[in-house]
């Protein structure tokens, strides 16, 4: 016998989960109706079915799939919840692996925005469950989860909306303020991916205005609209070879749009180690007493200057002459200005 009044939805869904986890055999529609008479049997047949379908969809969103099984000969037809797929399996994470997930999770949750942040918090809770009772474990996890920012700002909601658009492959329209000219333009973009680099979230996608792959800093998006038509049907298919990693790994001087050119950069012995750090995208052409000579592929010369000039006399652009001249002019002009009385 079921309850006599309809249940609050969260309650009904939890009750459904309990019913299915304890079921010994598939449950027919009649069984389910019998268990929830006020919910699934009080209205019209169609309304009841719709209600159940919506409940099933909500459960699926949180990773719980009810499937209908056609029984073999003498078995019963009906819905089942696959218990082996329901429960969190043993994760057997080593302490150092837990530490990495802990560090990654705390940084991501404490930051201003992160894709699928709510999901991330749930993932960490599940990891905390699986991690068991290491010394101080519970307290540490609690501290980390407490660092989660309760209210996200504009950036957080932009990142959240874009993440969903990327996953569902829905086109977005942006009003975007570019830093270079400071102009606001309207762009239709097929969002391919999101990457966090140099302290900012970057959207990569096909820009219909420019007819090519472009990058947009999410904090420079003034207005965002996700195509709401047919939310379950993708608007585009990203190129199969698209990997956000290649954008994540690209240094700023490879973000220009023209054809790239080759730059030779000399680093003093003190700075030679930067060949494996900041300038790891380059090829080492020479290494010796004088330091390192690197070959770098560059499409935005100014961006390279912004990385090289702060290093002072320990870093020198050797070629091409055009960029070397530009560096010399910038330095000469700055020196002149610093000689004047401020």
């Amino acid at each position: 016998m079921g309850r006599s009044i309809p249940l609050e939805r969260a309650e009904r869904l939890l009750d459904l989960v309990a019913l299915f986890l304890n079921a010994r055999e598939p449950l027919s529609w009649a069984d389910i109706q019998e268990a929830f008479p006020e919910d699934y049997a009080a209205g019209s047949h169609e309304a009841s079915i719709r209600k159940f379908e919506r409940d099933k969809a909500d459960l699926l969103e949180v990773g719980i799939g009810l499937v209908y099984l056609q029984g073999e000969e003498r078995e019963k037809d009906g819905y089942v919840l696959d218990r082996s797929a329901y429960y969190l399996p043993e994760l057997s994470l080593r302490p150092d692996e837990l530490a990495v997930l802990y560090a990654a999770g705390s940084a991501a949750l404490a930051g201003e925005a992160f894709p699928f942040r709510e999901d991330l918090a749930h993932a960490l809770k599940k990891i905390a469950f699986a991690a068991g009772d290491g010394p101080g474990a519970g307290r540490d996890w609690a501290r980390m989860l407490a660092a989660e920012r309760a209210e996200g700002g504009a950036l957080a909601s932009r990142v959240a909306e874009l993440s969903r658009a990327i996953a569902a492959r829905k086109r977005v329209s942006l009003r975007y303020r570019s830093l270079g000219r400071g102009q606001v333009s309207k762009r239709d973009v097929d969002p391919y991916g999101l990457v966090y680099r140099f302290g900012a979230w970057i959207l990569a996608g096909h820009c219909h205005l420019r007819g090519g792959l472009r990058h947009f800093r999410v904090d420079r998006i003034l207005h965002l609209h996700v195509n709401a038509v047919k939310p379950r049907t993708p608007d585009f298919e990203p190129p199969s070879d698209f990997r956000i990693e290649s954008i994540a790994a690209a240094p700023p001087w490879q973000f220009g749009h023209g054809d790239g050119f080759e730059v030779r950069l000399r680093l003093s012995p003190d700075l030679a180690f930067l060949a494996e750090r900041t300038f790891a995208s380059g090829r080492v052409l020479e290494r010796g007493r004088l330091g390192v000579l690197l070959g770098l592929r560059v499409s935005d010369g100014d961006a390279l200057l912004r990385a090289v000039l702060p290093l002072g006399e320990g870093a020198e652009i050797v070629a091409p002459e055009k960029l070397r001249t530009r560096a010399r002019e910038v330095l000469r002009d700055l020196l002149e200005r610093h000689r004047e009385v401020a």
């Binding site: 990773g63 329901y86 969190l88 997930l101 990654a104 991501a108 991330l120 993932a123 599940k126 469950f129």
Partner: peptide, 14 residues
Amino acid sequence: QKPPRLTVFEALAL
């Protein structure tokens, strides 16, 4: 006795 497994988006974000 145990929570549900990780969802795709939970595993993805982490």
